[in-house]
Design a binder for these strands. Structure first.
Lengths: 345, 345
DNA sequence: TTGTAAGCGTTATCAT
DNA sequence: ATGATAACGCTTACAA
């Protein structure tokens, strides 16, 4: 029973057309030209082009136990930070003969686990994951049982002992908070989506508290965990902060650009002015922040580079590097714009 | 010689462990439980879970000539419009047992062709492409020779007779231009990246001209083709427009959000005010436009829905629909914000 | 230089 | 109800 996919040319078809054996065609594909006569080689070359033959990756993969596939699981593909990392990973992926399967989990742990299973079925040779934090067992299993290298990107999972590429959140937060204090802000609030489970938020939160205590010697903790979806209480939380700090100079630090945008929308809606009523600074540096008011100051990450490095690390592991898992943390850069001016006394 | 990938469990391993034949395991996988005794079934089930077995998609694919893979080639993954379409496509993809391979071409035709080849090698069962316009031969070949359904998304290729899902650019442009004229703008300019080759830009440009002639009875054509990268001449082009229209009320329409951002940056840099010096309206509706000045008016596309529909169309074709290629054009919605106020006479 | 045959993991066919 | 076997497209010993 012929099950062959309609229209697909196989190595056997090429061999028949060229009047040689499929072994010879395979030799041609493997570029082992020294094992081929000039004539045969030409004939095969011509036939392959004419028939538009493309080697079947699945058959090759079956033979070698290799898929040439890398899995990349991201929490939110609509986030510019994510897409920049994808570009970095993809560029390197292709330069090394791999293809990238990008999977978007929408921050949903169940989706994440499902995707991991699918990727396992596709016999990916490596996995880069920006995890929700809800699939530790699955990740452990991929790494230890399947023996497939896993690189965490952006978000850490301390208990997992995996290569981790991301931002030096402590340095980043510390420099941001220190800067805000130096600019003269008396009350500084930190706004983030739910802090626990996601390491980036947690690290930024911890460093925020710590730095504030060290630099400002305050015991007030203006930390707000907000919900972006579905119903948001941001409005109330914002009011709470602004009322409690009435008369003081104040600034808001946001954990990422999604929160940043939300805060700006709310401030606008409630008629507060940036930076007169409240200064503003946020993690991530999407291009649009330059055109909001007199510009929003941000904490820029080398996003593309993070993607590249994650893939580099993965490739090293694929190529047999067995050294201890490492964490690479990139330094952030403060990009100062109009939203955090020096406070006039 | 064992070439088996280290650590990967096969159907044979499961069979041995469970003390049955691999046929039985295969029956279990195919959920043909009526051909299995209760006891055997339990035993297999238990073994599969214990060994963490995952069926090998490549082997399955080889057998069936199916990969369960869909290719999606996009021109710019950092564009929010693109990522929204990807989400739509991906959601539907997964609901139907397919996986999506997303490839980013950076608007580079060579990269696009390379990706198409790779996807062919992976024996994708369908292709969704937001094409640069530089791989018509390759696309023709995928469709006609490989007999793999191809759906164009966003950008059309008239000579190719393919299903095309996108925006009704004529309706969108017409309503935008008409609106601007009604608001009282005397000079309206259209800013776009190079117009030819990319159908969306071309259609918007054509409708821009046509509508302007019909509604404004003008023969002035303020059309500017700009380069975003590497060196940009936007500054000069902007000055040219603003000087030549000195004394008139004027507006700028941008072909997409990338151009929009560029224009805003330049206007800011040169000290022009929106909307006092020039009104502004752009295609696409990224979230940030709401917080720039008093908001930028935009032409919103149902991006997610476009992605979903593209995938729906592809699935229909995969399932054997042979009817004539169709073009589905979605209606745009004007989202009016502060950048296009009524001109006071 | 060229070809034959076995095997990769899976499913379908045909026995038993 | 269960198992042996062939086949999918490809590569590689091994043989000629």
């Amino acid at each position: 029973m012929k099950q062959k996919q309609v229209g697909r040319v196989t190595i056997y078809d090429v061999a028949r057309e060229a009047g040689v054996s499929k072994t010879s065609v395979s030799r041609y594909l493997g570029e082992r030209y020294n094992e081929l006569s000039e004539k045969t080689r030409k004939k095969i070359e011509e036939t392959i082009i004419r028939m538009n033959y493309r080697p079947n990756t699945m058959a090759r993969g079956l033979k070698f136990g290799q898929s040439h596939l890398i899995g990349m699981v991201v929490a939110d593909i609509t986030n510019p930070h994510t897409t920049a990392m994808i570009r970095g990973a993809e560029d390197l992926c292709n330069q090394n003969g791999y293809s990238l399967m990008v999977c978007n989990t929408d921050n949903n742990a169940v989706k994440e686990q499902d995707y991991i299973k699918i990727l396992q079925s596709h016999r990916i040779e490596g996995l880069i994951i920006n995890t929700t934090g809800g699939s530790n067992d699955a990740l452990f299993q991929v790494k230890e049982e399947d023996d497939i290298p896993v690189v965490l990107i952006d978000r850490k999972v301390p208990e997992l002992e995996l290569d981790t590429i991301g931002l030096d959140n402590h340095q980043a937060t510390e420099s941001a908070v220190t800067y805000l204090v130096k600019q003269g802000y008396e009350r500084i609030a930190f706004f983030s989506q739910p802090i626990h489970q996601v390491s980036t938020r947690y690290e930024r939160f911890m460093s925020f508290q710590k730095t504030l205590r060290n630099v400002q010697h305050t015991s007030i903790e203006d930390v707000y965990e907000i919900q972006i979806e579905p119903e948001d209480s941001v409005q109330l939380q914002l009011q709470e902060f602004l009322e409690s700090s009435n008369g003081q100079t104040r600034a808001i630090l946001t954990a990422n650009s999604v929160v940043l945008l939300k805060i700006i929308l709310e401030l606008n809606k409630q008629g507060f002015s940036i930076p007169n009523d409240v200064a503003l600074m946020g993690f991530d540096n999407p291009k649009w922040v330059a055109v909001v008011g007199s510009g929003i100051s941000t904490i820029e990450q080398p996003t593309y580079q993070i993607g590249v490095t994650a893939m580099e690390t993965l490739l090293k592991r694929i190529n047999g590097d067995n050294s201890n898992p490492q964490t690479i943390s990139f330094e952030a850069t403060l990009v100062i714009r109009g939203s955090t001016p020096l406070v006039k006394k």
